[in-house]
């Protein structure tokens, strides 16, 4: 499988990374080079293999239902580019 500039543009849009036309043109061969290389994985017969789910055999630990956190609004907002009266400000959104 290989990508063209339209695909690169689409991926960049999905990933929310603005790209210029020049960047797209440069990325097409670069990504194809990498994708071509990783495609050797297709050689491996994995028909009867399960995908790895946990690298070290282990299952999920659950915590008890206690309120142990929150009430740290100052800390949550401390690094905000637009701290608006206790809210995070973002450009106006129309839903």
């Amino acid at each position: 499988m290989s990508v063209d500039s339209a695909t690169v543009r689409k991926i960049a849009s999905l990933a929310r990374i603005a790209v210029t036309d020049d960047q797209v043109e440069a990325m097409v061969p670069e990504l194809n080079n990498i994708l071509g290389w990783i495609e050797q994985l297709g050689e491996v017969d994995t028909a009867s293999v399960a995908p790895m789910t946990a690298v070290i055999a282990n299952t999920l630990r659950l915590r008890d239902d206690f309120v142990t956190d929150g009430g740290v609004r100052e800390a949550v907002l401390a690094n905000a580019p637009a701290n608006q009266h206790g809210f995070f400000g973002v450009p106006k959104v129309i839903e």
Binding site: Q84, H85, F87, F88, G89, P91, K92, I94
Partner: peptide
């Protein structure tokens, strides 16, 4: 999100 608190911003 709150949209009616500021003319150009939504609040989160």
């Amino acid at each position: 999100l709150m949209h009616d608190q500021h003319p150009t911003m939504s609040y989160v």
